[in-house]
């Protein structure tokens, strides 16, 4: 079903306002630039075809988190290679995994790289929870995105933080 013009305008606004969500999911779940581009295309496509179903039943950010994380969690690397040609015109923004901007100091960039490296070593569900937590979502919002109970989110996050702390220490030791 073709989204009407209003939804099209909404899509264009969302990929601008919430591209941060897609960038962070890509950086967390893709292991290379090629995979990042593949995942980006898939997330944008899923957002596009899911848009007609959005009826304000959740916040836009919650809805976008769900689509992006569902896509990343169930995405199969290397499938649909024939269709994976990256259409130049569909590369919405340069969401390259390793892009650094002048605003990031070398130290912050290092920390960020360590954080992403540690996250990529975590199981996908834990990674998703950590991403949501780092983005500042409350337990209730995380529960809404994941479908877990708030209680379960609390305990799972505590465990995920401990695991991440261990991994960060390992990454830091390895890189120093």
């Amino acid at each position: 079903m073709n989204p009407p013009a209003a939804l099209e305008s909404l899509f264009a606004t969302w990929i601008e306002e919430h591209r941060g969500i897609m960038v962070k999911v890509m950086r967390s779940f893709a292991r290379s630039e090629t995979e990042a581009a593949e995942l980006q295309q898939e997330m944008l496509f899923q957002l596009w075809i899911s848009l007609p179903r959005f009826a304000g039943q959740a916040k836009p950010s919650t809805w976008i988190y769900r689509v992006c994380l569902n896509t990343a969690l169930t995405w199969r690397r290397g499938t649909n290679r024939r269709e994976r040609r990256i259409e130049p015109e569909a590369d919405v923004t340069r969401l390259a995994a390793d892009a650094a901007t002048p605003a990031e100091t070398a130290g912050h960039h290092d920390m960020l790289e360590k954080l992403y490296t540690a996250m990529q070593a975590m199981p996908s569900p834990e990674r998703a929870l950590v991403l949501l937590m780092l983005d500042g979502l409350a337990y209730g919002e995380i529960a809404e995105v994941t479908g877990l109970t708030e209680n379960h989110v609390g305990v799972a996050l505590t465990r995920a933080r401990q695991h991440l702390a261990t991994l960060l220490k390992g990454v830091t030791d390895e890189l120093e």
Binding site: D91, V92, T93, R94, A99, A103, M111, L134, D135, G136
Partner: peptide, 17 residues
């Protein structure tokens, strides 16, 4: 520190299609 870095990470802005 990690949380602060995460929140402050700049998001690349490139050419818009």
């Amino acid at each position: 520190d990690y949380e602060a870095v995460w929140k402050r990470q700049d998001l690349p802005v490139g050419a818009h299609a």
